[in-house]
C-alpha cells in the first residue's frame, strides 16, 4: 500500500531543473530516507510535497487522493506534517505555548493540558517548559519542532535534516524517537546527511542527484553502490 506517490514531478526555476521528472513511492509504515549531495533537490522536493512550491508538471498523490492543487494547510489537514531544516519554533514564546499552539486545534481544556504534558515527557523537555523557545539549545529546538510536528498525529511525517547540529548521542536519541513514532504507525520521510542516523532508522533509501532519482534500495545496497560513492565525491561527470 502506498501512502505518498510522486509522479513525474518537475520543478524548474528559470532554466534550472531542480526536480526533474521525479517518481517516488512511499509505502505505508516505512521509514524512508532521502539522501544526496547539496543541491540535489531534496528540500525542493519537500516544498513540493508540502505545497510551498507548485510543480511545473506532475502529480502528488496522498493516500490515493491527488493533492497537487491543494494549499499547504489543507495538506496538513489530510495528514501531512513537517519539521523544517532550520528549526521553525516560535522563538518568542515559551516551550509550553509552542506545543499549545500546535495542539489547540485538536484538544481543549483539561485534555489539552494532559496532551501537552504527555508530549513534554516524550520530548524530554519537561524542565524547559517555561523557557522561551528561542533560548533552547539547537538540539532542543529540533526536538521541540519534532514535537509540534507529531502533535498533529500525522500519517506522514516529513523530517528535513532532523539531526543537523546534534551530538552523536543526541542523534541516536532522535533516531530512537523516530523509531518509536514509526512503531506507533507513523510513516516517515527524512532528508538526512548523517549516515549513522540513516543506518539506524531507514527501511529504504533514495538517492537524489541533480534533481533526479539516482538510486534506491536498502542502506547496504546504497553504500555498496559505487556510482553513489562517486557522486558524493563529485566524479559523476568524470
Amino acid at each position: 500500500m502506498s501512502l505518498l506517490e510522486l509522479r513525474k514531478l518537475n520543478k524548474h526555476f528559470g532554466g534550472l531543473h531542480v526536480t526533474n521528472s521525479v517518481d517516488l513511492t512511499l509505502r505505508t509504515g516505512e521509514i524512508h530516507c532521502l539522501i544526496g549531495p547539496n543541491g540535489a533537490g531534496k528540500s525542493t522536493l519537500f516544498r513540493l510535497i508540502l505545497g510551498e512550491h507548485h510543480p511545473g508538471s506532475g502529480d502528488i498523490l496522498f493516500a490515493g487522493e491527488n493533492i497537487t492543487a491543494l494549499k499547504s494547510f489543507a495538506r496538513i489537514h489530510r495528514g501531512l506534517s513537517v519539521k523544517f531544516q532550520v528549526p521553525g519554533v516560535f522563538k518568542g514564546v515559551s516551550v509550553r505555548q509552542n506545543l499549545e499552539i500546535a495542539l489547540q486545534s485538536r484538544h481543549r481544556g483539561a485534555e489539552l493540558e494532559a496532551e501537552i504534558g504527555r508530549l513534554l515527557a516524550f520530548l524530554g523537555l519537561e524542565s524547559e517548559q517555561a523557557q522561551i523557545a528561542g533560548n533552547l539549545s539547537h538540539g532542543q529546538k529540533q526536538w521541540l519542532e519534532i514535537g509540534m510536528a507529531i502533535s498533529l498525529k500525522p500519517r506522514l511525517l516529513l523530517l528535513d535534516e532532523p539531526t543537523a547540529g546534534m551530538s552523536p548521542e543526541e542523534t541516536h536519541m532522535t533516531g530512537e524517537m523516530v523509531q518509536r513514532l514509526n512503531a506507533d504507525g507513523m510513516t516517515v520521510l527524512a532528508i538526512e546527511h548523517d549516515m549513522a542516523f540513516v543506518r539506524q532508522v531507514a527501511h529504504r533509501v533514495t538517492v537524489l542527484h541533480l534533481g533526479q532519482v539516482f538510486a534506491q534500495g536498502s542502506i547496504d545496497e546504497i553504500v555498496a553502490d559505487e556510482r553513489v560513492a562517486a557522486i558524493y565525491l563529485g566524479q559523476a561527470h568524470a
Binding site: 508540502l50 510551498e52 499547504s72 494547510f73 496538513i76 489537514h77 506534517s81 513537517v82 523544517f84 521553525g88 519554533v89 516560535f90 522563538k91 518568542g92 514564546v93 499552539i101 500546535a102 486545534s105 519542532e145 509540534m148 510536528a149 498533529l152
Partner: peptide, 11 residues
C-alpha cells in the same frame, strides 16, 4: 513568530 510554521500546523 513564524508564519511558515503556523501554516504547517494546519492554520
Amino acid at each position: 513568530e513564524n508564519p511558515e510554521r503556523a501554516e504547517m500546523l494546519g492554520y
